[in-house]
């Protein structure tokens, strides 16, 4: 098993994501006025998580296009590459929440609020990576246009889902889990399970796409 290349790629994606989060934060800071600055430090973990997810999504698509053919052309087996693709997603899904955990431990007054939902954020990042993979696979199969259409479809679907749930959940000022008549914990566990489930199913899909993968450069 040769995974050094993929491990490097995973680290790059994780730290790149953190970097993007910090960048987004910096842009927001510039626009902030004095009194709102206090809320800024509370929001910092959110930026890190958002940046990680966003960067992972883009990177997964890129990876299919660039690093996958590169690795296979240098003699990587498809199995190693499949594992490498999971390594990237998993490292980001674990790494970003771990950063937030560290932040929360250092500054409990602004960071600890995120602790109960960290596993959920991790699962969402995993899902984002999975969506990125779909874009990447679409690129492999149908080229640039296919990737674009896939990503747009997913984006619109996600947006639609977001709007619908926002509408539903804003009714009567209730919480989502109450509508589904669950406890808050059950709701979170359900969310995590769905994300991980989709991720696991996607591994099967990726394995299928990679099984007969052809290098074209």
């Amino acid at each position: 098993m040769k995974l050094k290349f993929w491990f490097q790629r995973a680290l790059f994606t994780l730290f790149g994501g953190i970097g993007v989060g910090l960048l987004m934060m910096a842009v927001t800071v510039i626009q902030m006025t004095g009194e709102r600055m206090s809320s800024f430090w509370t929001r910092m973990p959110a930026f890190l998580l958002l940046g990680s997810g966003y960067f992972l999504l883009i990177m997964m698509m890129m990876t299919y296009k660039v690093q996958l053919p590169l690795a296979v052309s240098f003699g990587s087996t498809r199995k190693e590459s499949l594992l490498g693709l999971q390594l990237i997603k998993c490292l980001c899904a674990i790494g970003a929440p771990v950063f937030v955990l560290g932040y929360g431990l250092l500054f409990p007054e602004v960071g600890s609020a995120y602790f109960p939902l960290l596993p959920f954020y991790g699962a969402v990042i995993l899902l984002t990576g999975t969506v990125g993979s779909w874009g990447g696979m679409a690129y492999c199969r149908w080229g640039k246009l296919g990737a674009l259409i896939t990503v747009l479809v997913i984006a619109f679907a996600a947006m639609g889902l977001g709007i619908v749930s926002a509408l539903v959940f804003s009714m009567e000022n209730t919480h989502a889990w109450e509508i589904l008549s669950m406890s808050r914990t059950q709701f979170v566990v359900l969310g995590i399970s769905i994300c991980i489930g989709i991720y696991l199913l996607n591994i099967l899909l990726e394995a299928r796409v990679l099984r007969c993968y052809e290098v074209r450069m």
Binding site: K2, F5, K65, V66, L70, F74, S76, M217
Partner: peptide, 21 residues
């Protein structure tokens, strides 16, 4: 022009090769 590989620097390309050979 659209190939993502184009953004690789020569040394990065060679480093990637070195991890496999």
């Amino acid at each position: 022009s659209e190939s993502g590989l184009g953004n690789y620097r020569v040394k990065d390309y060679l480093r990637a090769a070195a991890t496999y050979y």
